[in-house]
Amino acid sequence: MAITMTDSAAEHVKAHLQQRGKGLGIRVGIKTTGCSGMSYVLEFVDGTNDEDQVFESQGVKIISDPKSLAYIDGTQMDYVKSGLNEGFEFTNPNTKGECGCGESFTV
């Protein structure tokens, strides 16, 4: 089981953590809402829970919970720029469909 990130994603996470001045790493998970079933959660982490799993990729701690992992195991995070818009992109091998805007997905 693992979640990984590309170099550019790791760099941006590190930069954000440094700017924020605190935080152990980032949490990646899912929420069961949205028009197409589920949506991703991407948050800073200040403290972990007992059941959390911690991965390390490119020197960044990625934290997730077992329930989310069932849906996003094997996901790779990338940081992309398209025009003026930039942000994190998830490549999730488990998804079967996405809603039009890509904010939510089904497995």
Partner: peptide, 17 residues
């Protein structure tokens, strides 16, 4: 695919909202 931004703990926005 919508590009995601990192949120503060517990403040991830609901999709489409």
């Amino acid at each position: 695919m919508a590009l995601l931004q990192i949120s503060e703990p517990g403040q991830s926005p609901e999709p489409h909202q």
